[in-house]
Design a protein around this nucleic acid. Structure first.
Lengths: 199, 199
DNA sequence: GTTCTTTATGTAAAATCTGACATATGGTAC
DNA sequence: GTACCATATGTCAGATTTTACATAAAGAAC
């Protein structure tokens, strides 16, 4: 079983869904920390059905094409429960912006500062969106959040990770942009202001 | 050009290295936020040389096998400088522990709490290691860190990202473990206080 | 009526990455 | 002397992921 398989089972454990529904979910919610295109999802669903983890039934629709709605089986639910408590396989963290940072000493400083400023904004926007969701959840789900046995708690916990992740990232981007701007300014001042720059 | 190619150029812009050296670097430093095995690095070096981004010379050694030492070219350096200030291609964030969290409502709570406790420890250890490096850098590189034009500043900036990333992750794991433990306790209390379980 | 969009399900080619296989030098441990 | 380890460079099979190709129903826009 692949991680993608468990991601799909995680969604199907909450509600029956079609491949198309799953594809949309994989661009939100779970998709904050896992994602897949439909070209990965359809074949994976076939493999899951082969393995007995899901079943499907065809639902005929009037004003839309027919769809296959997938349901998790008892075996699928057991596999998912077991997977959840296993330590995650260590995967290397790949982050292109941090990799670029390693070579930032070579870069045009004005453009570099702008890059980090833009990324700061991007992460702050995502953070603001998450904070809205959080406020909504804490209001709407007040009772459900008191029990770790509710899917609502699980969604909330995932969102909390998203919030602290985005906040941390935005703050680091701000520190980077500030650092570059501040030091460029002080280096220009040292040179005497009206001079041109050199190597 | 692939991101891996730029990761290699980033290392070669600081010092000439062999494929073997690069492989070791990719498991540290840069490797904190990008990594590759030697089976990826050797073919990529050949492609980089094909594209004119690097050249190599064979260095004969007495007590070890000969090695190919790679050097970045002017074209390679230009490409790297340009890449650094380009916005990173948006990649989906994949994090298996957070994905597991989405299904934690199904899990055995004692085992789930233990999982997050272990992950908390793992990230705190990594954090402690990074903090040591930070203290060393701030002492040893005091002068170099005042200029954004030094590779030392770039290394330090990358490390700062590592530090805040690990701190954020450890804190969230702690919050998760605490939440699960606290709520499990209160639910047991509600069921009838005659059986007392620890703290 | 033709084009565009949303819903809906697939396949295929290519890129990327991991894990295993393969070879060779020379030092140290037993 | 032989087994193991660090150095050193490669290939190949397979898994994973992305991008593009492909089809089809029905409504909405022009």
């Amino acid at each position: 079983m692949t991680t993608l398989g468990y991601a799909i089972l995680g969604l199907l454990s909450r509600e029956d869904l079609s491949g198309y529904d799953l594809t949309r979910r994989m661009a939100g919610r779970v998709g904050y920390f896992w994602s897949a295109r439909h070209s990965q999802i359809y074949p994976e669903l076939a493999r899951l059905e082969d393995g007995g983890y899901v079943t499907h039934s065809v639902v005929e629709q009037r004003e839309r094409p027919d769809k296959k709605v997938y349901k998790i089986t008892a075996e699928g639910l057991d596999a998912l429960k077991e997977w959840v408590i296993q330590p995650p396989v260590p995967r290397p963290t790949r982050d292109e912006l941090t990799l670029k940072t390693y070579s930032v000493w070579l870069a045009d400083k004005a453009k570099a500062a702008q890059l980090f400023r833009e990324e700061e904004l991007r992460h702050e926007k995502q953070l603001a969106h998450y904070e809205e969701l959080r406020a909504w959840m804490e209001g709407e789900w007040r009772e459900n959040l008191t029990s770790t046995n509710s899917p609502e708690f699980a969604s909330y916990a995932t969102l909390r990770r998203g919030i602290s992740y985005e906040r941390e990232y935005a703050e680091w981007c701000r520190w980077m942009a500030d650092s570059i701007e501040r030091r460029e300014l002080s280096e220009k001042r040292e040179k005497g202001g009206s001079e041109e720059k050199g190597g």
